[in-house]
Design a protein around this nucleic acid. Sequence first.
RNA 1: GCUCACGUAGCUCAGUAGGUAGAGCACUUCCUUGGUAAGGAAGAGGUCACCGGUUCGAUUCCGGUCGUGAGCUCCA
Length: 639
Amino acid sequence: MRVALTTGEAIELPLGATVAEAIKALCPGKVRKTSVAAQVDGRAVDLSTPLAEGAVIEPIAIDSQEGLSILRHSAAHIMAQAVRELFGAEVQVAIGPAVEDGFYYDFDKQESFSSDDFPVIEARMQAIVERDLPFVRQEVAKSEAIAMFKAHGQRYKVELLEAIEAETVSLYRQGEFVDLCRGPHLPSTGWLKAFSLIKVAGAYWRGDEKKAMLQRLYGTAFPDAKALKAHLHALEEAKRRDHRKLGRELELFAISDQVGPGLILWQPKGAQLRKILEDYWKEEHYRHDYELLYTPQIARRDLWRTSGHLDFYVDDMFSPMEVDEVSYQIKPMNCPFHIAIYQTRKRSYREFPIRWCELGTVYRYERTGALHGLMRVRGFTQDDAHIFCLPGQLEEEILNILELNLHILKAFGFADYKVYLSTRPEKYVGSDQNWQRATEALKLALTKKGLPFEIDPGEGVFYGPKIDIKIRDVLGRFWQCSTIQVDFNLPERFAITYTGEDGEEHQPIMIHRALMGSLERFFGVLIEHYAGAFPNWLAPVQARVMNISDAQLDFSKDVYLQLKKAGIRIEKDLRNEKLNYKIRQAQLLKIPFMLIIGDKEVEERKVTVRLRDGQNLQALSIPELIEMIKLESRIPVAD
RNA sequence: GCUCACGUAGCUCAGUAGGUAGAGCACUUCCUUGGUAAGGAAGAGGUCACCGGUUCGAUUCCGGUCGUGAGCUCCA
């Protein structure tokens, strides 16, 4: 029979030849050695799969994304086998897929795992690897598989099987361990070269919080030890950059039990940085033809009844308070206030588009388990805006928003995005026609902007379709910040109108959008992105004056005052300490410019500058110094 | 909210097999006046998260509450 590679090369092989044999015959040594499975006629299969006449093969390399996922999936099976061997057959195994950076397997076991168990499990996994057991695929009738797992007492597998519609299912066996699995897998356990268990945590059976809590063991695996080491190093690096740790060390923000969980206290350094962010944001919004609003923190609860938020989100809102026998509510959203401003007078189509923005602080009751540093909080400030426009202006407005959005993100060095377009969910308001038109407008705008996007079917909010943008930080992690949402609900519920060209009243289209999302969260992302070493334009302290001894006190104070007057964010460290010590402390605080003053500098009326990276500049006069720092602290301009 | 773990000085952590606690850094004072990542000495600082129980006695054991962490679930 004749089989071919997707590249076109073909060969004659005896009937019943396997994928492995075909790859051996057709591919150079390197491909042969790194192929763990293959796409055959578009389907991922094991190397041991027999081929049919005319099969077209594309080898899957172990270091490709798909290959890695096969490797990790196999590692999950090996881990499950190790756990079963170690802890006995009464351990129930649930599911064990490959995930983003590794794999996990869920177990139901009386006693809980702890990280102390990891070395033992890893050692047993290593033993299984050394046994080099082949992964053997077997297709059986569903009923047969159910009977087998029942006999083994594996009720989770039985439950999974019962949910499968197909009559035939595939099992994978390595040694004594059999698992229900679609495959493909590595040829044998010996292929697992580098793996590590990472953590253990609870996880609900089938992700349902009403169902049993299982124990999830996370691990990761790589084709070689070097790649594993690099990954573990990256995890360390992420830990080193943890915004909660840096926030405390750099005195940026704090969270106090006394105040309450999920409520952020912005310390002076953090507040300074926030001010820079806010000023920049306002400036850019002014330039992009937005008008700024301020609205209250609370409003009558009825406002939220009208808006519909109460119906959908009452469990996520703080409890109401009584004021003069009227129920008030702390705001979880800014939009109803903007609508109230819209309603202050009659509106004409000639005013459109109306672009209103606000740094609006909102409070939402997040479940305790969801809280996390600055990333998930109960009180936060949205960089919110609402745009009221005509249906025909929708696409252009989306385009404007995208343009401002990317412009702002780029200033922080975020130039890599994942863009999602979320379409109509099952539960929704608004006409099908409106949904379709709005979704088309979003799509068109994204296409015009040249932004590749993925469709997230059914993930839109009940009131309209949306675009979400995730930004990629320097560690390659993605963070959801920007969101652009069309809203058919609020204009309807508040019955807002404008007078059209025809003299009739019409309903405007409303767009909600946030670029940074929440200032708290964005701040957290920035801390991790920059590892606390903020660029000069954002650094809460740009420079610190350090004298060598008391002899330079006067000049040092003079330098401090002059820079302060020039608007440089400056501090002084004139303590009776050694220079080494002062430099070390400034370095740990990641201050960009260290201004060093000794006798030589006093004599020349100049300052020696040490940069954060250890580099020394030539001595500068005070005016030169001010100019240099200002020049180095310009806001980065995005294309 | 759920599962598991954790909560000792401002920070990082040690400790007590039940007899009211200790280090380093930071802080204060003194000595030192020193040129690019920690000079020396002394001092101050803790109701061992909170509430209850067991006990002659609890920071230590048990229960609850609050908070934190990892994950699950959720995120207008």
